[in-house]
């Protein structure tokens, strides 16, 4: 195998995803020439919660698990933020946000601990946990409501440099880099990929499999909590049911972003770009005057095509 070929295969998501996003953006500008700074800002804002949900899911999926409670955890963070920040000042709201992120880590830890202690498969535990966190979100805030100080919402909704750079994009890059880069380059990152690609081999090489799985859910919980805060910035309120959408669409972004659901293969950048693509599709459809409900059909078709293409490639490679 040639070196460039291998490089291409290894970093396929890094090369293909930005090109896809550029393609989608170019198409959007072609369809709707008035597409400007404001639209970029609403795109970045709209993609923010989805991208963070995808980040939470990515960490867990890389470790060979799957988290069906991401959306419910986001909902909990969202309603807690909207309830506690309603009459808070900006400084206070930042402190609260930090507490909520800590809470997210704790909730992820609960998921991970139950998972490791009960030895029940990830799908079942996080499915059940999704019910439970969803119930908690409803207990905290029964109806959509609450709020947060404008300065706090502005962290996601505002812009920098005279409206050129959307805050939401900066926030996403800063948050994901601040959490993921240290994890990725540490021992934890290595073991994360190791247990995702071959759990038995990792165990025999002395990796603490259970501890790594647990930590993957903790990091996922942190991302989910930030995602919930982002949801508050996007909508301005708390809504106990808004998060549920993000479990499946976050998983969709992970798949489209080139992360293998069997674990151990893929990175964080692919799903981030995929979140932008999945957010652009309904926007484009509105510009094209097509029923935006087709968005769901297209999202589904895109997922199916991406994974089928991947499957086909594997089949062809196996054939002599």
């Amino acid at each position: 195998m040639t070196r460039p070929g291998r490089l291409l295969r290894r970093h396929a998501a890094l090369l293909v995803m930005p090109m896809l996003v550029a393609l989608f953006l170019a198409a959007t500008v072609a369809i709707h020439p008035a597409f400007g700074a404001f639209d970029v800002q609403s795109l970045a804002l709209g993609a923010l919660p989805l991208a963070l949900a995808a980040a939470a899911q990515t960490v867990v999926v890389l470790s060979g698990g799957i988290d069906l409670s991401v959306g419910s955890l986001m909902a909990v963070a969202n309603v807690v933020a909207a309830r506690t920040m309603q009459h808070a000042g900006f400084g206070q709201s930042l402190g609260l946000a930090a507490l909520i992120v800590l809470g997210g880590a704790a909730s992820g830890a609960v998921n991970g601990a139950v998972l490791v202690a009960s030895r029940v498969p990830d799908v079942v535990v996080t499915l059940a946990a999704g019910f439970i966190w969803g119930g908690i979100a409803l207990l905290i805030l029964e109806q959509p409501g609450g709020g947060a100080p404008d300065a706090f919402l502005n962290l996601g909704a505002g812009t920098l440099f005279d409206g050129l750079v959307p805050n939401a994009l900066v926030l996403l890059i800063v948050v994901v880099a601040a959490i993921w880069l240290p994890v990725r380059s540490s021992r934890l990152g290595l073991t994360l990929y190791a247990i995702g690609s071959d759990r038995t081999a990792a165990f025999r090489s002395g990796v603490a499999v259970e501890r790594t799985r647990f930590l993957a859910y903790v990091v996922g919980g942190v991302f989910s909590a930030v995602g919930g805060l982002a949801l508050t910035m996007t909508t301005g309120i708390g809504s106990p049911l808004a998060g549920t959408y993000y479990t499946l669409s976050g998983l969709a972004a992970v798949v489209v972003g080139g992360v293998s659901l069997t674990g151990g293969r893929g990175g964080m950048t692919g799903p981030m770009f995929a979140a932008y693509i999945l957010t652009l599709i309904p926007t484009d459809l509105i510009f094209l005057n097509i029923d935006p409900n087709f968005g769901q059909v297209i999202q589904g078709t895109l997922i199916v095509l991406v994974v089928m293409g991947g499957g086909l490639a594997t089949l062809l490679r196996q054939r002599p």
């Binding site: 969709a252 589904g300 199916v304 994974v307």
Partner: peptide, 21 residues
């Protein structure tokens, strides 16, 4: 096509739901 069942049926579920709307 050897697609993981979780992903495949997630995709077709979205397609079916969207087509229905």
């Amino acid at each position: 096509f050897r697609v993981q069942p979780l992903v495949m049926t997630l995709g077709t579920g979205l397609m079916a739901q969207g087509a229905l709307v």
